[in-house]
Amino acid sequence: MRRVQARQSLAVYALMALVMVFFLGPILWFILLAFRHPSEAYTLPPQLFFEPYLGNFGDTFVDPGNNAPQLLSSVIVSSGATLLSLPFALAAAYALSRFAMRGKEFIMNWYISLLIAPPIVFVIPYFILMSRIGWAGSYRAMIVTLQTLAIPFSVWLLKSFMDEVPLDLEEAAWVDGANRLAAFFRIIIPLALPGIIVTSMFTFVFSWNNVIFPLALSKQSTTTLPVGTISFFASTGVYWGHIAATAVVAMLPPMIIFLLLGRYVVRGLTFGAVKG
């Protein structure tokens, strides 16, 4: 009996090892590419051990460093979109979490329908609208239009966190004479704070990884890092070293944030629908 179990767990480990190589291998291979000298990008058979070369990062972020401003743009656009969505989403999530009202389900479904609608449908009209109102290529244009994704997502996730704040605590505050607004700031906000932080982190990552809005609405000086990586294909030949260096920098913040989020990953990726 014990032998069978040992053999079974060995099989599970072997399969999981294959799974991990399959899912993490391509990422590691690309990170290695960022540290290879451009002349070694295509060396076959593949070399796992080599003299690390930092020139790719130097070229892209230091001198001439064309991608450094894109990193700043990414931070501005993602933080801006996250901060702008919060007041709207907090109010809506509180209403949906704490009140019985007609059409609640319809409104929840309406928010999610925006999340799964094809963004390209909205982007082209925005492209023309923004040049008409003089916002073409501005950070504002990207931050505002990203709200079509940021607000519905944050409403769903924040509602799931607010649902977990016990109603009794709020009622106790009302009895003590606090009005709804005061109770909201004194009870809900502090107790839902972890949820608010988690929601902000997810909104930041989704905005960071978004390409379709900046691709259509940015100009060269405001474009974000993921869009910046694409531009290397426009010039003659493909500079894999430069692409890899910028892409590695672009992939780091989402990876780190997801590792920090730990047990909230399931909940965030399902907009709060699965608690995890």
Binding site: I27, N209, N210, P254
Partner: peptide
């Protein structure tokens, strides 16, 4: 980790 990447990456 793969899910955290931007699709372009």
């Amino acid at each position: 980790m793969p899910t955290t990447l931007a699709p372009v990456v």
